[in-house]
């Protein structure tokens, strides 16, 4: 007879479709076979995890269609048993799985759509933080501008794509036919707005460089240097301030340092 630890590991092996002898420790009752009783748990395990993928990756599901989605759900569930206390995190490794596993890896836009949805979910319940205003910026003494650094709202992320995954996601969300997969190097800004709604928009290259520079600890003077690749010396400050102002308006700057 099993001790408690052995019993639990054997039960878990059954859920994970591994070799298990748990059936030896289950009683026949009321004419319902042991296999049916264990099957209720085995089935519930798979249904629950599949349902979690459906909830968090609705548009990915539409893109794949039922058959491919079922294949993905079964494959991911088998290869990545949940190590999380919350189902919210179960799909954390889904983009990586899709990038590395056939047949999904042959269509790289699929992994990108999954990653985009993970980032939207992250923005949805990322931490709260103060949001700086234009008044905060204008009250900053002029001599502090060159050394000014930014701390961003925790929901803010830069999402990089190599394929037209975001336009495809947008088309499916609008219940339209998505475009054919094609190369598209792009950067996207994702954040949670003042009303706690998740938003995203594309980033021009100079704005991406500026955001990325601040994210990596650069100060305003460093950033202006970087922007010389995209603007003339006379235009740099105006463009930088334009971007700063737009970030303040959408609430992604938490503090100036």
């Amino acid at each position: 007879m099993f001790n408690l630890s052995e019993l639990q590991h054997e039960f878990m092996n059954h859920l994970l479709d591994k070799k298990s002898v748990i059936a030896k420790n289950v009683m026949e009752q009321n004419g319902v076979p042991v296999s049916t009783r264990l099957g209720i748990y085995g089935n519930a395990y798979k249904v629950r995890l599949k349902s979690s993928i459906e909830n968090d990756h609705e548009i990915l599901g539409i893109y794949l269609g039922d058959d491919l989605f079922d294949l993905m759900a079964a494959g991911y569930t088998a290869s990545q048993p949940s190590q999380f206390t919350s189902l919210r995190d179960f799909c954390e490794y889904l983009p990586e799985y899709l990038r590395k596993t056939e047949p999904f890896s042959a269509t790289p836009i699929i992994a990108e759509i999954a990653e985009f949805e993970r980032n939207l979910l992250f923005a949805f319940d990322a931490g709260n933080a103060k949001r700086s205003t234009i008044e905060d910026l204008t009250s900053l003494p002029q001599e502090q501008w060159p050394t000014m650094k930014l701390r961003f709202h925790p929901s803010m992320q830069i999402h990089k794509t190599h394929w037209n995954s975001v336009p495809s996601w947008q088309a499916l969300k609008a219940e339209k036919i998505p475009p054919q997969q094609e190369k598209l190097d792009a950067y996207w800004l994702i954040w949670r707005n003042y009303n706690r709604i998740t938003e995203f928009r594309s980033l021009a290259m100079d704005e991406y460089v500026m955001l990325n520079g601040f994210l990596h600890g650069g100060n305003f003077a460093d950033i202006c240097e970087l922007l010389l690749e995209y603007h003339t010396e006379e235009e740099v400050a105006v463009n930088a301030i334009t971007h700063l102002t737009s970030w303040l308006e959408i609430g992604i700057i938490s503090t100036f340092q």
Binding site: N3, L4, S5
Partner: peptide, 25 residues
């Protein structure tokens, strides 16, 4: 109940055996 073992979470409420070892645990 128990839900996880070996760091794998079943996300289900799995039954305990009703014996002294499980009670003390």
């Amino acid at each position: 109940c128990w839900t996880s073992v070996g760091k794998v979470n079943s996300h289900d409420l799995l039954p305990m055996p009703y014996n002294e070892e499980a009670i003390q645990h």
